[in-house]
């Protein structure tokens, strides 16, 4: 049982009309792995993410999280199970405070009802207080505590990305170490300058260890992929064309072909 993969995808396909965005996709991720998912634009990487998180329903195939079939679950149910994600274009609750962004992610753990809220019951005050404390704790871990009351959209780009990751990891901060969690990062380094990228790589390494996370990462910046991923999966036209250790796939002719095109005899 201990060797049960955190995520087991088998024969996963998703077609948009005649377009095979993802076809016969197989992947298993073991607990604690940090896997990179790369491929040229339009290869279907983000579609895989959307399938895992329930934003799209698969045309066929299965997705198992800790042995449980999740392909028919709604996105919020999957998030509550412990699979959270960030987005290619940062999606924060832009006009809310940094603190509120994190507090909303605590939402499903705040188990008081609307009546408690309206009547300001004792239960409400107790839970609100603990949510407030826990959220501040999360912000401290991610070095955002001094920004707590600022509006999210006013943060610099790097901090917005950090906040998005913090929000995705809210429930990991307090759950016990045994419960595995899966974090999906969709191009976290997009649009970042070299020093921001360096910080981001440190952050990903840090959360990976600290919260005992399993991470699947889409990235175009090869520096990031080669620097932090233990294993890389390469996609093209909705299919896996190669996988292995970062330095191995770098020299795989199929991968080079996918990115650069086929070498033809010079005329």
């Amino acid at each position: 049982m201990n060797n049960q993969p955190v995520l087991q995808i088998t024969q996963l396909s998703r077609y948009f009309g005649g377009l095979k965005a993802v076809s016969d996709f197989d992947m298993a991720i073991a607990k604690g792995e940090l896997v990179g998912l790369i491929g040229p634009n339009g290869a279907g990487k983000t579609t895989v993410f959307n399938l895992i998180t329930g934003m799209y329903k698969p045309t066929s195939g299965s997705i198992k999280y800790l042995g449980e079939e999740i392909s028919n679950f709604k996105p919020h149910q999957i998030a509550q199970k412990g699979i959270t994600r960030t987005f290619q274009n940062i999606r924060l609750f832009a006009s809310l405070s940094v603190l509120d962004n994190v507090r909303i992610a605590y939402h499903y753990k705040t188990d008081y009802g609307v009546t408690d809220a309206i009547l300001h019951s004792r239960k409400f005050s107790r839970i609100e207080k603990s949510v407030q404390e826990k959220s501040m704790q999360v912000l401290k871990i991610f070095n955002l505590a001094n920004r707590a009351y600022e509006t999210a959209k006013n943060l610099p780009y790097g901090e917005q990305r950090r906040l998005e990751i913090a929000r995705a990891l809210v429930s990991a901060v307090e759950t016990n170490e045994d419960k595995p969690r899966l974090l999906l990062l969709d191009e976290p380094a997009a649009g970042m300058n070299p020093s921001e990228i360096k910080n981001l790589m440190e952050l990903i390494r840090f959360v990976h260890e600290k919260f005992n996370l399993t991470i699947l990462l889409i990235e175009h910046q090869m520096k990031v992929v080669m620097g932090i991923c233990e294993r890389v999966v390469v996609m093209d036209f909705g299919e896996i064309i190669s996988q292995g250790k970062p330095d191995a796939i770098q020299n795989d002719p199929k991968v080079i072909e996918a990115y650069l095109g086929k070498a033809t005899r010079a005329c």
Partner: peptide, 23 residues
């Protein structure tokens, strides 16, 4: 309150809201 913040999160970004576990 928490339900209120969930309401506002729907306005802000429905997809992100689902992704952090809000129904």
């Amino acid at each position: 309150s928490a339900p209120g913040r969930a309401l506002v999160s729907v306005r802000e970004d429905e997809i992100a809201s689902e992704a952090v576990g809000v129904n």
